[in-house]
């Protein structure tokens, strides 16, 4: 253990954050303001998610942190170390063994259970922000359910690109009431927002917390003649051969060679451990 209070934040702060979380769960999709604290990391590195995780963690929890699906990127590693040091909780890279998962920009491929909590890092919680810059006005639009403007954005997409080109941070309507920004997850992950686990969203700089309780209806906005499509790269993972997972494209050299790999590293590793092999899996398997 360290000299820090458990999970860095003082108990009063954690109470304040828990109250915001409970309110968020009671009103799914509603952005609850909270008094975001200075954290020992810059804004944009997950200060919101870290505060929500800190208020959620208990000493018995097992924490997993992912960044774009990966356990081994800078952001994920430093946040995991942060909680190892300040909370002394067990950490894991295996999705199924974690009780609290903090994520940036992905939902894990493995289906989450009722015993798990998924904490998102959110840069801009307000889905209407780029359409209506005034916070007073967007709050009014939320309270009066005036969401026509959200469809104007999708209309513009279709008229300019022939299709809904928004591919991440795709707006959703929660429980037929609030329009919510699901954080910049790829729209491939949108259907997974209806899940058994509790989902908490923390935006540190913007000082907002919102939540989606288990089994809540989450509908991606679309048009009748341009329905929502959860898209991904049309390839199989080159390491594990999965055709169902969301893929990252990796440029291999300057001759145009590239490979597609699962963005969820734990999913890819566990599939390879089960003996699945992709196109480049045998030679590259260990290196990745």
């Amino acid at each position: 253990m360290s000299d820090y209070n458990f999970a860095y934040l003082d108990e009063q702060t954690k109470r304040m954050i828990r109250r915001a979380i409970l309110k968020g769960l009671a009103v799914p999709g509603y952005q609850v303001p909270f008094a975001s604290r200075e954290m020992p990391m810059p804004y944009g590195w997950g200060t919101g998610g870290v505060q929500v995780s800190a208020a959620t963690l208990t000493p018995e929890d097992t924490l997993k942190v992912i960044d774009q699906g990966a356990d081994d990127t800078t952001n994920a590693v430093s946040i995991r170390k942060f909680f190892e040091r300040t909370a002394g909780v067990a950490t894991t890279e295996e999705t199924t063994k974690a009780s609290v998962i903090q994520t940036r920009h992905r939902i894990p491929e493995a289906e989450l259970t009722e015993d798990q909590i998924l904490v998102y890092q959110v840069p801009i919680p307000e889905p209407l922000r780029f359409l209506e810059p005034r916070e007073t006005e967007t709050r009014k639009m939320h309270s009066l359910e005036e969401y026509g403007l959200m469809h104007v954005k999708l209309y513009e997409d279709i008229s300019q690109h022939g299709d809904i080109a928004t591919s991440y941070a795709y707006p959703v309507k929660v429980e037929d009431r609030y329009v919510m920004d699901p954080s910049p997850i790829p729209k491939f992950d949108n259907p997974k927002l209806e899940m058994a686990a509790i989902q908490l969203f923390g935006a540190g700089r913007e000082q907002r917390i919102y939540a989606v309780p288990p089994y809540t209806r989450v509908v991606s906005l679309d048009f009748e003649d341009y329905p929502f499509v959860a898209s991904k790269a049309d390839h199989a993972c080159d390491l594990c051969g999965s055709e169902q997972s969301y893929l990252d494209e990796v440029i291999l050299d300057d001759a145009g060679n590239r490979m597609f790999v699962c963005s969820d590293t734990d999913f890819c590793r566990s599939r390879r451990a089960q003996g699945h092999v992709g196109r480049l899996g045998e030679n590259e398997g260990e290196a990745a």
């Binding site: 005036e146 026509g148 403007l149 469809h151 104007v152 209309y155 513009e156 279709i158 008229s159 300019q160 048009f223 009748e224 003649d225 341009y226």
Partner: peptide, 27 residues
């Protein structure tokens, strides 16, 4: 007007605000 939204989007906004959800009809 919304200056950063196309002419079609400007006209369509009111239709979408009252529940229009068919792109072809709106256009």
């Amino acid at each position: 007007l919304r200056m950063s939204v196309s002419a079609g989007g400007n006209i369509g906004e009111r239709l979408m605000a009252v529940g229009g959800r068919h792109y072809g009809d709106i256009r």
